[in-house]
Amino acid sequence: MNTVDGEDGLIAGIGLPDEGAPSELDWDSLATGRPGGFRLCWLHLDQKEERARDWIRSQAGIPDVAADALVAEETRPRVQRFDNGLLIVLRGVNLNPGANPEDMVSLRIWVERGLMISVRLRRLLAVQDTLAALREGDAPADSDELLAKLADRLFRRMEPVIDDLEERIDLVDEEQTAGSLRQPTNELQQLRLRTIILRRYILPQRDALHQLTNDPPAWFTRRTVSGLREAADRVIRYVESLDEIRERAMVIQDTIQNRNSEELNRRLYLLSIISAICLPLGLLTGLLGINVAGMPGSDTAWAFWAVSGLMIVIVALEIWALKSLKWFR
């Protein structure tokens, strides 16, 4: 029983006979190529191990193009038809400890009747769930049904991540509605960035699943096609949710910026009004403050109070004029 994750590149190998319990496969079972004597076989391999890459290229018995795609360093979600099978590349959220969920993990799959080969770079919990279900007796009828089960678990694992983003954007929205959020926060920027990254990888999976369900292989059962369509609908909901989160984040940021701009404009307007009122007073006091002979009232005791009264009258006239012009209320 091969249970050591990534040991020599064979993470797990399970053969399902016509009757009886599943068999655990090891490299000895694959020494001559594909294992025989099973109605369904699933091999889950580690792309980082050279032994796994060599076996895929030389002994898996799949087209060279598909083999190269399974062991490629970089790839994107897609579906490619071959005469005897399908190449499917999907991505799942990274739920490994200490990892960012938006750092999505690719899962490359070759599937044909009676055989599924999956290759990964990092651990995916959806794969572990499916392996555990197989070992506990949840045996699919064929590889197409196994593919549908794996895809369903892969996309269900995304739901908590999307829900978390929705809860966080709701919280930010509540804060800005209450007026406690005055500046675009790091939280808001991170939400937008995470949403963009997730959407970038999830959206192609919707197209890939649509391609697969619109023109499925002849050996796919109706149950499998129905399951894959349900998975595609789930992905569509995720994309729509991500679009909504991204748009809400933009609206919140625009609202905060507009609120700050309005507040700044009000302050600048108030300063402009004060400046307009004080400008004549400044001109008058500047004129009376020049140090030249002949200034009227310099020898009169009540001249200061006369000037003060005149300035009060000027301010009153200015306020009346500004209100008449409806510059302020």
Rank of each mutant, 00 (worst) to 15 (best):
V111Q: 01
A133V: 07
V105L: 05
L147P: 13
R120V: 11
R122D: 15
A133N: 14
L134S: 12
S106Q: 09
R123I: 00
S143W: 08
P101Y: 02
E102C: 00
E136G: 09
M104K: 04
L150I: 13
L154A: 08
L134Q: 11
L125S: 12
I117T: 10
D142Q: 06
K149N: 13
E145P: 00
R120N: 04
D152I: 01
D103Q: 03
L134A: 11
D142K: 00
A132W: 07
E145S: 13
L107I: 10
L147D: 11
I109W: 00
V111R: 02
E102W: 02
D142F: 02
D144H: 07
G114V: 01
W110D: 10
D103G: 01
E112A: 08
R123H: 14
V105A: 03
A126E: 13
D138I: 04
I117H: 04
S143T: 10
R120K: 07
R156Q: 15
R153H: 09
V105T: 10
D142W: 02
M158F: 08
R113L: 02
P101A: 02
L147I: 10
L134V: 11
A139D: 12
R120G: 05
T130G: 00
R135H: 11
S118N: 08
L146Y: 02
I117R: 03
L121K: 10
M158H: 13
I117V: 14
M104W: 01
A148S: 14
E112I: 06
R153G: 02
L121F: 00
I109Q: 05
R120L: 06
V127L: 08
L131V: 10
L125A: 12
F155W: 12
R108W: 01
R135C: 03
I117G: 04
G114A: 09
M116H: 04
R120H: 09
A151C: 15
W110C: 05
W110S: 07
S118H: 03
I109K: 02
S118Q: 09
S106N: 10
A132I: 10
L125I: 12
E112S: 12
A141G: 12
V119E: 10
S118P: 08
A133Q: 14
V105K: 01
Q128H: 08
L134D: 15
D144S: 15
R123L: 05
L150A: 04
G114L: 05
P101K: 01
A151K: 05
D138Q: 13
V127Y: 05
L131P: 08
L131N: 07
L134Y: 06
A139V: 14
K149D: 15
L146W: 04
L150E: 09
A151P: 00
E102F: 05
F155A: 06
T130W: 04
S118D: 12
V111A: 03
S106H: 03
A133F: 07
P101T: 05
D138G: 00
R153V: 03
R153L: 08
G137V: 10
A139Q: 12
L150K: 05
R156C: 09
